[in-house]
Simulated scan of single mutants.
Amino acid sequence: MQFGIFSVGDVTPDPTTGRTPSEHERIAATVAIAQKAEEVGLDVFATGEHHNPPFVPSSPTTLLGYLAGRTERLILSTSTTLITTNDPVKIAEDFSVLQHLSEGRVDIMLGRGNTGPVYPWFGKDIRAAVSLTVENYELLRALWDEPIVDWSGKYRTPLQGFTLAPRPLDDVAPFVWHAAIRTPEIAELAAYYGDGFFANHIFWPASHTERMIALYRQRFAHYGHGTAEQAVVGLGGQVFMRPNSQDAVEEFRPYFDNAPVYGHGPSLEEFTAQTPLTVGSPQEVIDRTLGFRDYVGDYQRQLFLVDHAGLPLKTVLEQLDLLGAEVIPVLRKEFAVGRGDEVPDAPTHASQVAAARSRAGADEDAR
Rank of each mutant, 00 (worst) to 15 (best):
L76K: 05
G265E: 07
Q352R: 15
E342A: 15
R253Q: 08
A309K: 00
T275S: 08
R293M: 06
D10P: 02
R253G: 01
L268E: 11
P329Y: 01
V239Q: 03
G69Q: 15
D363H: 03
D170Q: 11
P88N: 04
R339D: 10
N86T: 12
E334T: 09
S59D: 01
A350C: 07
V31L: 12
Q160C: 06
R339G: 07
Q300H: 09
I33K: 02
R367E: 13
A187H: 03
V118F: 05
T62A: 10
P347D: 04
E185S: 15
F292I: 05
S245I: 10
A350G: 08
S59I: 00
V44H: 11
N52F: 00
K154L: 07
V353L: 09
D107N: 14
F220H: 11
V337A: 08
N200I: 03
G297R: 12
I91C: 09
P282A: 14
L110T: 12
D321G: 07
N244Q: 10
T133P: 15
E269C: 02
A362D: 06
T209P: 00
F252N: 01
G48R: 02
F55I: 00
E93N: 11
D298K: 05
T272Y: 03
P347Q: 10
A179F: 01
A214I: 04
H225C: 00
F256Q: 05
D321T: 10
H178K: 12
V89E: 07
A46D: 03
G226K: 09
D87R: 14
H308R: 06
R105V: 12
W121P: 09
N86M: 14
D10L: 02
L74I: 11
T84E: 12
E251S: 03
V330H: 13
R182L: 11
H308Q: 11
E334D: 12
G41H: 00
L268C: 06
K36I: 03
V239E: 06
A142S: 13
P266M: 12
D257W: 07
S102P: 02
W121L: 15
V130A: 15
A206N: 01
S7Q: 03
K314C: 01
G104V: 14
A29K: 00
Y295W: 14
I148C: 06
S58I: 00
R357I: 01
G153H: 04
